[in-house]
């Protein structure tokens, strides 16, 4: 289990990284935390001829507030997210979710950029980014552009990234104070991808749901935004009948694959359960 040979590049700036990626073409891959890519290389399921290591690019690090948004550098690790007070105060759901990703060692190295950019439907951050209305800054040879998370995912491992483009940062609008949130993830064990998971961010007014967004992880080829399910709970107090209705609306858009985590009917069923549980828990913590 040894990776195939490759050339190693370690640029110091985003411009150099982008230049390398676009000039080396499809045989080059950016290397962030490496915890998805390196195992694939060891299995020789990925055999890039060039690796562009982003650890030398200082501009890709950091977590900062910019107006009403939190801007997270693509190379911020899950561990750094967990250590950030800014995240803890403004985006507490990110702490909850980061702790459910892989294991402690992986979280020291695994980056948020890698998690959202590689298009693995099993990754947890993409559905959350869609739920939070985040956008991604993509930089390429022809300049920078921002793409909404909801527009980014096209299929398993297929994203809006053009060849030579690099995801450099994520901008997350800060949800209103007092918002409720929850990420319910069913997995077989620590380190596993979700059998099914649901992210909920909502606000309550007078005991009723005022706004709500629901994201789903690993229940389709791409992360999903369950808009009908979210609509179904607006204006309700999340009574059992409403929860059931929301779950049914969410299940209707799920199309998971059968795998060792269970058959399709199971993964859809627990997908609905995760939606109900996340809604209830989010409402309970809303102020």
């Amino acid at each position: 289990m040894i990776p195939g040979p490759f050339s190693y590049h370690r640029p110091a700036t985003v411009a150099d990284a982008v230049k390398l990626l676009s000039s080396l073409g499809e045989e080059a891959r950016p290397l962030a935390g490496g915890h998805s890519l390196v195992p694939m290389m060891k299995l020789r399921l990925a055999t890039p001829e060039h690796l562009v290591d982003l650890h030398g690019v200082a501009a890709l690090k950091g977590i900062s507030r910019s107006g009403n948004a939190i801007v997270i550098g693509a190379m911020a690790t899950q561990h750094e997210l967990l250590a950030s007070d800014e995240i803890g105060q403004s985006l507490p759901i990110l702490h909850e979710i980061a702790l459910l990703i892989a294991d402690p060692q992986v979280r020291y190295r695994g980056t948020i950029g890698g998690n959202v950019a590689n298009g693995d439907p099993g990754n947890d951050m993409p559905a959350l980014m869609m739920t939070l209305g985040a956008s991604y800054r993509l930089e390429g040879a022809s300049g920078a552009r921002d793409v909404a998370a909801t527009e980014f995912y096209q299929g398993a491992y297929f994203t809006a990234l053009e060849p030579g483009e690099l995801l450099t940062s994520i901008s997350v609008p800060v949800p209103p104070a007092g918002h409720g949130y929850a990420y319910e993830k069913l997995k077989r064990k620590v380190g596993d991808y979700a059998t099914a998971a649901a992210a909920v961010v909502l606000t309550m007014a007078d005991g009723k749901v005022a706004t709500c967004a629901i994201g789903l992880t690993n229940l389709s080829e791409t992360p999903l935004l369950a808009t009908d399910a979210a609509k179904a709970v607006i204006g309700t107090s999340l009574d059992p009948a409403t929860l059931k209705k929301a779950a049914e609306a969410a299940v209707a858009i799920m199309s998971p694959a059968a795998d060792a985590r269970g058959p399709v009917e199971y993964r859809k069923h627990v997908g609905g359960i995760m939606v109900m549980r996340a809604l209830s828990r989010a409402a309970a913590c809303a102020k």
Binding site: R188, K189, V190, G191, A260
Partner: peptide, 24 residues
Amino acid sequence: IRYDDDGNVVTGSFMDFFMPTAVE
């Protein structure tokens, strides 16, 4: 150790072969 109908092992790595951690 589970095989699919074609005889492929579907639980052939520590991702799918259940190896409990301290948490489970």
